[in-house]
Design a protein around this nucleic acid. Structure first.
Ligand code: MN
Ligand code: MN
Ligand code: ZN
Ligand code: ZN
Lengths: 158, 158
DNA sequence: ATTATTATTGAGAATCTATTGCAATAATAA
DNA sequence: TTATTATTGCAATAGATTCTCAATAATAAT
């Protein structure tokens, strides 16, 4: 089931109505794997001549979250940033405090924490959000700082 | 060094000036361990007759973050929520999607992830934010759901 | 197909959060 | 005590999101 089919199913089951505007929004969001915010999405569609009002975009976002197509990633510069979920493996985010860059990385150990938390507190954990802060390799080089822990030059994990 | 002393030191070293307004804000923030937002802080001080303008509160928040006294915790209901840091052990947050409750818990394993991330990518990791989502014990009981993983009734961890 | 029902749209107004300009005030240094 | 200038409070502003409402169109019923 692709993103459009998922949304159609969700819409039907929720007693809502599907519209071309919503499908255009979904298609644009799933075109790239980048993080996005309402304004860039709005301008992007405007440039492609398939302009959709901001109100409709704002009204569609909660539906896309509810249907599991997108999720909130981080709040920055006064507004929320999102990413699509379907077909995009779960990952964490590293934010460089030097250059502002966001770097994605995969990390399974958080699942252990989830499990431990379930067992210990009786929670049902359905998801998580992990963000690391610090300085990226480029910023460390630029400032001539040394990395704290290691000097190995690997990029692969797991 | 308590929070006021830390702030005085920070202010001096940064070439800023300390003011009674700022100390009132800090004292209020360190009165309880609760999460807070600008508006509740403002109203709280207003009720205590030590009213301080919202502009000053907004202008003080970045200084408190910079000096390491508070940090951002989560963005909810259209605005940021904070907590004080000094004298408050680092912890993660579990958010119940049922009742909205935020539950704090301690978790050391994230440090391993930080370390692994440093070593693998050459980042200098200075901090993290981990949030788990799901349903708390009370909400699970209310809905008659069963917990996924365990039925043990412990609350202590580590 | 036609009609009825009502969710959705777009435009702009309204609301809410956060920032900024400015004159008065007050913290620090000389 | 005086000079310097950061800070304050207030009001204006900017920016993000929600809301109002009339027109439109998706779905269900006929
Ligand atoms: Mn991402
Ligand atoms: Mn907390
Ligand atoms: Zn960087
Ligand atoms: Zn709950």
């Amino acid at each position: 089931m692709n993103e459009i089919e998922v949304f159609r199913k969700y819409v039907k089951e929720s007693g809502l109505r599907n519209t071309p505007e919503r499908e255009v929004i979904i298609e644009e969001i799933f075109l790239t794997h980048d993080h996005f915010d309402v304004d860039t999405l709005y301008l992007c569609l405007k440039n492609k001549k398939c302009s959709i009002s901001k109100a409709s975009i704002y009204r569609t976002i909660p539906l896309l979250i509810e249907s599991g197509l997108i999720k909130e990633v981080f709040f920055e510069d006064g507004h929320m940033h999102y990413e699509h979920v379907l077909g995009h493996e779960h990952h964490c985010h590293f934010r460089c405090l030097g250059c502002g860059k966001i770097i994605e990385f995969k990390e399974d150990e958080v699942m252990d924490i989830e499990k431990k938390c379930s067992e210990s507190y009786g929670f049902e954990v359905t998801g998580h959000k992990l963000e690391l802060f610090g300085y990226c390799r480029e910023c460390l080089k630029k400032e001539g700082k040394d990395r704290k822990v290691s000097t190995i030059d690997r990029v692969d994990v797991d």
